[in-house]
Design a protein around this nucleic acid. Sequence first.
DNA 1: AGAATATAGTTCCATATGGAACAAGACTGC
DNA 2: GCAGTCTTGTTCCATATGGAACTATATTCT
Lengths: 156, 156
Amino acid sequence: MVRRQLNGAAAPPDPARMFDTVEFRDAYRISYLTNAIVVPTYEAIRRDFGIIRAEYVLLLCLAHFPVLTARDVSRITRMPRNSLSRAVHRMLAEGYLDRSPDPSDGRQARLTLSPRGRGLHEQIVARLVKRQEEILAPLNVKERRQLDRLLGALHE
Amino acid sequence: MVRRQLNGAAAPPDPARMFDTVEFRDAYRISYLTNAIVVPTYEAIRRDFGIIRAEYVLLLCLAHFPVLTARDVSRITRMPRNSLSRAVHRMLAEGYLDRSPDPSDGRQARLTLSPRGRGLHEQIVARLVKRQEEILAPLNVKERRQLDRLLGALHE
DNA sequence: AGAATATAGTTCCATATGGAACAAGACTGC
DNA sequence: GCAGTCTTGTTCCATATGGAACTATATTCT
């Protein structure tokens, strides 16, 4: 079974070669990591757990801060308010969330995870920890510390 | 001007604290970098140059490989074929692209950048190089080499 | 050669996404 | 106290996105 060249005139494009010639290699690498790893991971979560990105983001934030408003989550994650509004309603309907009006401010509502939501979060975390392990597999312990430090520095 | 606490009972959520407690910190950091940097950059390109992600991806690939088929671009970037089909048509209509049927295979078409497309690419590259410079500003030269090496290793 | 299979590109459709406008509640300064 | 302004959460809408089916061409196998 002969593998044809991908196009007649030029050499078959080796995706890796992009990294050698692109003018903003590190940004391109981060973007590539995203498309190759982060996006498919969101996709897998959607497929296996039935929640979309905004819902997952909500879950993650509430698992780390016991009580938040939708606006808080928006600020933490930079996700638009309307996407989070939808997410809150769907998570409420699924029983992953509890919501109670803030007595001191009639506009906002205090959100917390229900036990069911906490269970879902634990499942997803297990999945993501495993996925991160696969991603970082090429690095040894010292290199992982370096990467962690460098990524941390990028957040200022 | 007093800044109110973001919610009544708990401490105001410090987004950075997520990095301390999340169970998959590095994956989260990469994802966060994406949402905070890569996505807004795509957004700025869309706003300022009027092209969307698939179109930008097409432009970038063709700037680095002189002639490709749409399928090649799909393989390089892992972007679905139909998104690229749309992108090709819009870039053709805008005059950024040339397309000629492959004489040896009636199914595929050979794509190349027009001079206009090359000009657009140069503008966008200048923008992205500047943006990367801002992103990497917190790192010194040695740290940048380290980061580059580590990100490279992650691609196996 | 002809049937079965594979591939490139396209179209159709369902859904995710975010901007903008809006309503209700809260704050500001006079 | 109240007019003007700001903030939260919501709805409406336009668009980006990708899965799946489809057409036309190419390849493989007998």
